[in-house]
Every structure is written in C-alpha cells, then in structure tokens.
C-alpha cells in the first residue's frame, strides 16, 4: 500500500511539472492579448463585461489598443497602468492589491480561515470529554460486512 502511495505521489508530481512546463512554452503575444483583455472591463456601460468578449464598439477599440501596446513591447503592468490612466480605475476587472482594496482579496480568505477555526471548535466541543474505547479495527474481509450493516442502518434511518 505504501509503495502504491509513492507511485501515485510521484506520478502526480510528474504530471504537474510537465503541465507547468508546457504552459510556460505556449505563451506568446496572442495569449498575452487574450489574458490582458480578459482582465480589463469594458466601460461602455453595458455592465461589467470583460473587454475580450463585450459586444460593442468600445470594446473592439480597446482590444485594438491592447494589441498595439503588446506589439510595442510594453509590459503587462505598463499596459494596465496606461488603461487605468485613460479610462479610470473602473477599467480594471479586479481591484488592485493596494491600499483599501487589498481587503477585497484578503477578506474572503480570512472568512475561509475563520470558518475553519469555527468548524474545529465545534467539532472539539461536540466531542465527548472522556474518549470512548476504540473499537478494534476489523480485518479487511469483515469490512464488507461492516459496510453492509452501515448501509442497512442508513437505509432504515430514512
């Protein structure tokens, strides 16, 4: 069983590494334009639809601008900055990691962590203070029997 675990673990790692390598290779200009236009929001007023897919003249114009910037060799950061200057901060699809807006990113995960703490506290509190004697672990063939009983119990409870 332990060997199987090792094999699984190394296979996962291998797959992961290959995947990362392949992703790195395939990024070119077109990919960049796509990523950039997916992170910018069209300001045409048709609600927050990303530039890459908004169906209006303004978005088409903005897509051209992005492509021109990419061709001119600007970095992503420069392009975002230029857009922010021209269209205002609302053009960025997600708040920047800056000042008050950091909260937008941090709080969901603070919520997640707080929830985790709460779950742990609840489980701890609901656990009996005196540990019950461990039931002896059944041998594999008996587990099917155990499963069957559990299932029956489960079905009865309905």
């Amino acid at each position: 069983m332990l060997r199987l675990k090792k094999v699984v673990a190394s296979a996962c790692l291998l797959i992961g590494l290959t995947a990362v390598g392949l992703v790195a290779q395939s990024s070119d200009d077109k990919q960049r334009v796509s990523t950039l236009t997916n992170n910018l929001v069209c300001t045409c007023g048709c609600a927050n639809i990303i530039v890459a897919s908004c169906d209006c003249g303004q978005a088409a114009e903005m897509r051209k601008e992005v492509a021109a910037f990419v061709q001119a060799g600007k970095t992503d950061a420069e392009i975002y900055e230029a857009f922010e200057k021209k269209y205002g901060p609302a053009v960025l699809g997600a708040p920047k990691l800056q000042g008050f807006n950091i909260l937008a990113w941090v709080l969901p995960f603070v919520g997640l962590a707080a929830g985790a703490v709460l779950v742990i506290v609840v489980v701890k509190r609901l656990r009996p203070s005196i540990p019950e004697p461990e039931t002896a672990e059944a041998k594999p063939p008996e587990i099917d029997e155990k499963y069957r009983r559990l299932l029956e119990e489960e079905l009865r409870e309905e």
Partner: peptide, 10 residues
Amino acid sequence: GEKITVSAPF
C-alpha cells in the same frame, strides 16, 4: 471615493 470594478477576474 474612487469607483472601482469587482468582476469576473476577481
């Protein structure tokens, strides 16, 4: 006091 967007990318 600044209008920002929180949309799909976020």
